[in-house]
Design a protein around this nucleic acid. Structure first.
Lengths: 215, 215
DNA sequence: ATCGGATGTACTTCATACAATATATTGTCT
DNA sequence: AGACAATATATTGTATGAAGTACATCCGAT
């Protein structure tokens, strides 16, 4: 999935270590991130840890006021709304841009991820369902071939994962979502960019409103 | 405008120094960014320069493969299309979210920025026109109050500025753009979120198509 | 007793030194 | 002469130490 760079450098190691802790909710909002401690934990020096923290700050996962100890960024359940609004919009744009150029292989991949999603829902494996959902959408994002789109969507997915881990651990895509995916696939087959965008947007917005309900 | 932090730290100094060079096109695409040299130029050490480069890499202004000298990110005239697509979409979303909550002061500010834009166009001051245009849109972005939206739009504006500096130095918003802004203001006054979004989107998309034409 | 100030400690930031890797240069062999 | 190998040089990434700033704690004064 995430093979952008194998973990060779110390900085990457620190980044991966921190990011997984943040996304999985092991590092709680407000928690202080001390260079020296983290460096010791993974047996490297403070410099690459600092560099990783700068990256994560830029991505909004860490807050670091000047001359102030860095902390895990705050997060609340209803942050999900702030994330999903741009995420749904950008995913819709990706679908719109990709629809005219999607290949047969793309459609095959989308179908396969959607089957995987259905299976995961049946098995009540929330985590696998979320991964399959993300993989499904990533097909069109990647086909859209816009590096800004890709980068922002990745970032928003990361934040979504964190908020889900923190507050909605048992929530995930449902059967209705899988049906909406079928709609998206159909729109792509029809080369109907507008329909693909619309179906994608409503897929995200509905997912949000459901999560907000309780838990 | 940008008073998030006065330039106190060495890292901020390096960041500001590099960013202005990049945005103004003084640092050309592909140019090598040697931290030692840059450090000397502004009389600090390599560490904060490296940190600034990491930030800029995360923002797509610098490319830095591991163990490879960092370079100014490549840029081409038609990158503008890749930027404007998500930018228009996100600005439209900002307008949609902000429209219901816009205050009288917001409207006053938008009008004033639009007047400034008209004046700049009359004076044929492209740079001032672009600044006024950005300020106009920033009103609703800020009212939308979504930190992801704000951050991505800022980043995209930075890239836009760079590409404009590099390839479309004399191009800027025109009278038609100012008229479209009036439409946006009217939509906001009507509390019509959909219309505000639509007008904003087309304002951006038209701006793009014009730029592409010649020069 | 509470507020203000001063001192000590801890931490952030920056600089520099060192190690590891890539690049350039030189020399040798075909 | 051209190409490949070996060595030298430059440069990137990491570690550690030093300096300056903020925070906490303790004491004194009102």
């Amino acid at each position: 999935m995430d093979l952008e760079h194998s973990v060779t450098s110390a900085r990457d190691a620190a980044y991966a270590y921190l990011r997984s802790g943040l996304v999985e909710g092991r590092l709680r909002p407000g928690e202080i991130l001390d260079d020296a401690t983290i460096a010791q934990e993974i047996s490297i020096s403070r410099t690459p840890v600092r560099e990783a923290l700068i990256q994560l700050e830029r991505e909004g996962m860490v807050t670091a006021a000047p001359r102030r100890r860095p902390k895990v960024a705050g997060a609340q359940p209803d942050d999900l709304a702030s994330i999903i609004a741009p995420l749904g919009t950008l995913q819709a744009l990706a679908a719109q841009l990709a629809a005219p150029y999607a290949t047969d292989d793309d459609v095959v991949a989308m179908r396969s991820h959607n089957d995987e999603l259905l299976q995961a829902i049946e098995d009540e494996d929330t985590r696998r369902a979320r991964l399959a959902d993300m993989a499904f959408h990533r097909v069109l994002v990647s086909r859209a071939g816009n590096r800004f789109l890709t980068s922002y969507i990745d970032s928003l997915e990361m934040h979504t994962s964190r908020v889900m881990s923190l507050y909605f651990r048992n929530r995930g895509p449902d059967g209705q979502s899988a049906r909406e995916h079928a709609e998206i696939i159909q729109a792509v087959l029809d080369r109907d960019a507008g329909a693909a965008a619309k179906a994608t947007r409503s897929n995200y917005l509905r997912g949000l409103s459901l999560v907000g309900e309780e838990e």
